[in-house]
Design a binder for these strands. Structure first.
Length: 581
RNA sequence: CGGGGCGUAGCUCAGUUUGGCUAGAGCGCUACCUUGGGGUGGUAGAGGCCGCACGUUCAAGUCGUGUCGCUCCGACCA
């Protein structure tokens, strides 16, 4: 490609709308254009990089027995009514009607369609397992699109679905995908980590997210330095650390605590630390048919993980109870406590709470708290205990007992075990060797392609621009003749360029009538892994200069060895990102 | 969805407080000259529904109402 012809609308200044480096660079390098909020075009240079990522994914999926296909993004509501998601999925699901007034949607994911195909096409265990996949656009009407292509509404995703005859088969498929994902992200040059995850609205048990480590990531991950434990903070658990262990149980005291409605205030007034308190949170759990008042108990210094609570309750939504709703259950807002609550109130406690000795808590009466409360003595009732706390840095690893650390990550992929959630609803069954019918056992496995590209840039850039790993670089080499008035120099550059093309090297020649500084800056911005500069030194000493974008290393090479050297360097870069080497 | 900020040239932004000539700058773009190893210097140009609508006024980029869009924080989310 000739730089003079390349459709790469680069920007010298940083567009005002972009906050993070990858978004700014994608805009500045002309990789993407915004069409509407959360909706982007991939421009030619950006799309070349996307195609590289797609090909890597495709190769790894095919290696594991995946079979590529393509499903529609516009789907009829009936399918989603059958699976139950038409009513469950919220406003994120883009719904619409056709000219006849029939309901359709823009697919945010494709479980329904693929499952309905398998239902029609697969009868026998002999046809399983099957691993169909596609690389398709998806649409989710995000409340708040952000960070360019990282959280967009329309996005490109690879989604593979596994269909097995039983759980053992699912385990095999799941492990295949875990391995494939590790290879995909390694080849893309990402610093990533698979972590145990919540399976969210898609449902099912067993899930890993693949996190590209980055400070601008939207997810927090909790991991252990002492062992392999790593999980999203949505699901991370810890070893319980109840306070007061070994103390004698003291009699309950009712004390006045005027105007102290927060844990901090009360603890300060009583002269205890927050971890000696139990906080009582009142929620309204919203189910499809009903609403339920829920009291949740947590050690005073912990934060509630509402995702855990929501999953535990099995409800659709969760909100704080209003002051009136709290009063309706014989409690005072700001002074709630579990002691003396009516029998019909559902009380769920974090695992730590029932083990705590002599804790303080609200008295259920305005301006009063109770001291030395003990569940084990029967001071109050708990309906159920569960893991409810939000795990933070510094907590204790549930596996090895060491201290946990935290980091932020961009979620570039996720794998789920769906089990029979969709096959049962949609009737995707097969007959085994004994003639018995079973639901197929499913898994689903997604990779955000655009997000992966953004994560690569987020991890590989400097103040001058993008530093592409060669495996996903739009072009591999740029040839820069320094002086376009020097015919001999231009000719040498052309020769090299043609020779590289002959060897299937993806090369660009900067044939623009620009100052060297302009060419160098654009080369840095666009992030070509290898830059060849031909200038004065070539004329005077017969030496061209090769500069590597990543290390900044400069090598001076005689003209005769130039092409061979470029190809060696290129091969070494590929080898460095090959998980088999 | 709640709260804040912003919509003026392709991009970054002045101008709006206190309404008043023909709406500005830098970058980019076009032509020519100059320069030729890190965004060279110069000359001449092109480029604007001042987001949209309605209203107030002799007069609106500037004031009011509405609306659309963008953005940040929060809530939420495979």
């Amino acid at each position: 490609m000739r730089m003079s012809q390349l459709y790469a609308p680069t920007l010298r200044e940083v567009p005002a709308e972009a906050e993070i480096a990858s978004h700014q660079l994608m805009l500045r390098a002309g990789l993407i254009h915004k069409v509407a909020g959360g909706i982007y075009s991939y421009m030619p240079v950006g799309w070349r990089s996307m195609k590289k990522i797609i090909n890597i994914i495709r190769e790894e999926m095919d290696k594991k027995g995946g079979q590529e296909m393509c499903m529609p993004i516009v789907q009829p509501a009936e399918l989603w009514q059958e699976s139950g998601r038409w009513s469950v999925y919220g406003k994120e699901l883009m719904r619409m009607q056709d000219r006849h007034g029939r309901d359709f949607l823009l697919a945010p994911t494709h479980e329904e369609v693929i499952t309905s195909h398998l239902k029609n096409d697969v009868r026998s265990y002999r046809q399983l397992p099957l691993l169909p996949y596609q690389i398709q656009g998806k649409f989710r009407d995000e409340r708040r699109p952000r960070f360019g292509v990282i959280r967009s509404r329309e996005f490109l995703m690879k989604d593979l679905y596994s269909f097995d005859r039983d759980e053992a088969g699912l385990d095999i498929s799941y492990h295949k995908m875990h391995d494939a994902y590790t290879r995909v992200f390694s080849r893309c040059g990402l610093n990533f980590r698979p972590v145990v995850a919540d399976s969210g609205a898609i449902g099912g048990e067993g899930s890993h997210e693949f996190m590209a480590l980055s400070e601008v990531g939207e997810s927090e991950i909790i991991f252990c330095h002492g062992c392999d434990y790593a999980a999203t903070n949505e699901i991370a658990s810890v070893a319980p650390q109840p306070t007061g262990l070994g103390e004698d149980m003291l009699p309950i005291e009712n004390v006045e605590t005027p105007n102290c409605t927060s844990v901090d205030d009360v603890a300060r007034l009583l002269g205890v630390t927050n971890d000696r308190m139990v906080k009582t949170l009142c929620y309204i759990a919203i189910y499809e048919q009903e609403e339920k008042f829920v009291v949740a108990l947590l050690r005073g210094d912990r934060q509630m993980n509402e995702i855990k609570l929501l999953n535990h309750l099995g409800c659709l939504e969760l909100r704080f109870a209003t002051d009136d709703e709290v009063r309706a259950h014989q409690m005072a807002p700001g002074y709630c406590g579990p002691v003396g609550l009516a029998e019909d109130v559902y009380i769920v406690a974090d695992n730590e709470v029932p083990l705590m000795v002599n804790h303080e808590c609200g008295a259920g009466k305005k301006d009063h708290h109770l001291l030395h409360v003990n569940y084990q003595r029967g001071d109050y009732r708990i309906s159920e205990t569960a893991d409810l706390m939000l795990v933070e840095k510094g907590a204790i690893c549930p596996v090895c007992g060491k201290t946990l650390d935290s980091a932020r990550g961009i979620e570039v992929g996720q794998i789920f075990k769906l089990h029979t959630k969709y096959s049962a609803k949609l009737g995707a069954r097969y007959v085994d060797e004994n003639g018995a019918e079973h639901d197929m056992v499913m898994g689903c496995y997604g990779i955000g392609v655009g997000r992966t590209m953004a994560a690569v840039i987020e991890q590989h850039h400097d103040e001058f621009g993008i530093i592409w790993p060669i495996t996903v670089a739009p072009y591999e080499v740029i040839v820069v003749p320094v002086n376009d008035k020097d015919a001999w120099l231009v000719e040498q550059a052309e020769n090299l360029y043609q020779e590289l093309l002959c060897h299937k090297v993806e090369a660009v020649i900067d044939d623009r009538q620009e100052r060297p500084g302009v060419k160098f800056n654009d080369a840095d911005l666009l992030g070509f892994p290898i830059r060849v500069v031909m200038g004065k030194k070539l004329r005077d000493n017969g030496l061209a200069e090769i500069k590597l974008r990543e290390s900044g290393r400069v090598i001076e090479v005689p003209l005769a060895e130039l092409a061979a050297t470029v190809m060696e360097l290129r091969a070494a870069m590929f080898a460095g990102l090959d998980p088999d080497k």
